[in-house]
Design a protein around this nucleic acid. Structure first.
Lengths: 184, 184
DNA sequence: TAGAGTTTCATTGTGCGCAACTATTCTGCA
DNA sequence: TGCAGAATAGTTGCGCACAATGAAACTCTA
């Protein structure tokens, strides 16, 4: 009949089955029309903003990556870190952070998780003990091949011409650089 | 001499000032060269990926927004929700989620925070008690004017031609749509 | 009209992103 | 040489994203 563990209960419970057919809010009807086809005007509110277009596209892209990365036991930021390490084994936290624009507040726990997963080894640099160097383990290195197919699939899912993709990447690079400057 | 609360201590402490000049890891030397000037090839690893370009640009854009929104006491997703409510007061959680591609796991606590800040009121729909409708308070409505200047500033910081921005937005829209389809 | 299935929203848990802060090590200069 | 300040990582805390799950309300059909 009822479980012992109750996770939540509705704050407001039914006000007598809504037999007051007043339709207190005229928007209710109009909302129905928006059910399957969200009105163009509403989308446009957001689509007018470049920032939302970026936010939205970025999440959609990582969502396409997610199932592939999940098979490798990785999240997208973890995958980015490995991409760097595959080319520059032994990079420090600062170097990784510079490439990814992430600080130690994000990277430190992320690297600990990669270490716990057996993909990297962290060790203090011998000649500068402030530096924490990140080295691939054999498992981490082996993952490289399995991950090789990942970026390909996004390009296919993108539904854009190859030239269009190149142009997009170029525009985004310049945009990102300009924004980093603007953020002082 | 010492505080009572110790937040953390280095896992590995100095190995006797590195007097063991063995250089246990031959890679240490090679790392030095990468110290100050991240090699071009490394940047290219990431820049080859559209997904990283999106991820990067998106974070840079919200970073430019952040100080402006901070003055309004808002985060970027909260600002997006208000953008919608300013045009469609009384929208339900599902409707907001559809526009923003966010689920209730994200929106429910976000809306509670907006409510706690006195910007919105949440109330169950009378004619369908599953629906939770979100209404602006006077404060929430008043914020609209103060927020009007926000998007303008990003366009300036972007450092792109107006036409280029339009094209970018268009490309991103098509990309996002295609990716949503690809994600099944 | 009963009840199976759907819709809507909430909660829990995990991991990222970022600000604020702390600890440790190194550097440069007086 | 010693010490002030910089550089490097780590921690804490908060707010998103998102998966998995649960509860309540509604719908549709036999």
């Amino acid at each position: 009949m009822h479980n012992c563990i109750v996770h939540y209960v509705r704050e407001v419970t039914r006000n007598s089955k809504a037999q007051n057919a007043v339709a207190a809010n005229p928007k209710a009807a109009q909302d129905e029309t928006a059910q399957d086809a969200p009105r163009v005007s509403d989308r446009q509110i957001l689509q007018r903003q470049v920032c939302f277009a970026l936010y939205s596209a970025s999440r959609a892209a990582t969502a396409v990556y997610r199932p592939m990365l999940q098979e490798l036991g990785l999240t997208y930021p973890q995958y980015l870190v490995l991409l760097l390490l595959w080319e520059r084994d032994g990079a420090s936290v600062r170097e990784l952070g510079e490439e990814l624009a992430l600080d130690s507040g994000t990277l430190s726990p992320l690297l600990k998780r990669l270490e716990a997963a057996g993909l990297v080894r962290r060790q203090r640099s011998v000649d500068d003990e402030r530096r924490m160097q990140v080295h691939l383990t054999d498992d981490g290195d082996a993952l490289r091949e399995r991950a090789a197919a990942v970026p390909q699939q996004l390009a296919e899912a993108a539904g854009l011409e190859s030239g269009e993709l190149d142009q997009l990447r170029g525009t985004l690079s310049r945009l990102t650089a300009a924004l980093h400057v603007a953020a002082l």
